[in-house]
Amino acid sequence: MAEKLMDIKDLKVRFKTEDGFISTVNGVTFNMNEGETLAIVGESGSGKSVTSLALMGILPPNGEVYEGEMSFRDKNLRTLSKKDYRALRGNEISMIFQEPMTALNPVFTVGYQLRETLIVHFKMTKQQANIRGIQMLELVGIPDAEKAMGRFPHQLSGGMRQRVMIAMALSCNPRLLIADEPTTALDVTIQAQILTLMRNLKEKSNTSIMIITHDLGVVAELADRVIVMYAGEVVEEAPIYELFENPLHPYTKGLMASIPKVHDVVDDLYSIEGTVPNPANMPSGCKFHPRCPLADIECTKIHPALEYVNEGHAKRCIKV
């Protein structure tokens, strides 16, 4: 049995708005093991990104965790001081985002930003940091890494910037890498390069990866285990093969049937009627019931619990 890396129990996050508090994560529970790649899948508004921001302790100023437990290894994240959180973020958890341009500082060179991380977190000298920086760029497949150290972010292409981001994120040997839509902004041939890179990293290092995406193709390529989120809740959790072979929740099934597949072309796609509910106005009972083909009167009243049906496979539905 692999060692547990992280545990989230009944996490709730809300945002203060002009109309009062709006809760976007409503009791999320899951855990991660060392060396595991976990995918969190969901559409916009599912709460998948907010969950990861809460975990990193970088929610926007109007957001707060108001209930639940979060622990990382032996640390309770809810009581962690700002200073300890900052150390944790650099040394043990790092994150890469969809648009690397927003995360890289445009006025400093790639080398400066890579070195800074290493100098701050490992107390390296500038020279040591430089050598390590070049090694990191080589690791993520940047040609002519020494020259690349002197470049500014705007001088690099989108794919190269994402590689730099990954190099920075990995430079401190994190236990956990959180990747929020890491390939969504990239062209498909560049996406294939980055996914291959992440797959290699996964095999070579013991870094756990949490990949947040809406793209089931990316999930199928990388993940060991999958969590499907809808309206701020986990609606299904399963190991990767189990999820694709035997999806249980009507939302998961709908999602899988509604994506066009290059290897299986149908005349008309299945479509999930309606739209994702507004967090300020959530449906009663099961939050998916207004869009669910199986829903009946019971579903409008009972809020189903997340139940395990077999080893590692859980669903939040009373009809299946």
Binding site: T189, A192, L195, G217, A220, E221, K261, V262
Partner: peptide
């Protein structure tokens, strides 16, 4: 290469992409 880069949403078809 372009068409081979498309990730297929089924883990049974995991493969090395033509890069």
């Amino acid at each position: 290469a372009l068409l081979d880069s498309v990730p297929i949403p089924d883990p049974r078809f995991r493969k090395e992409h033509l890069l």
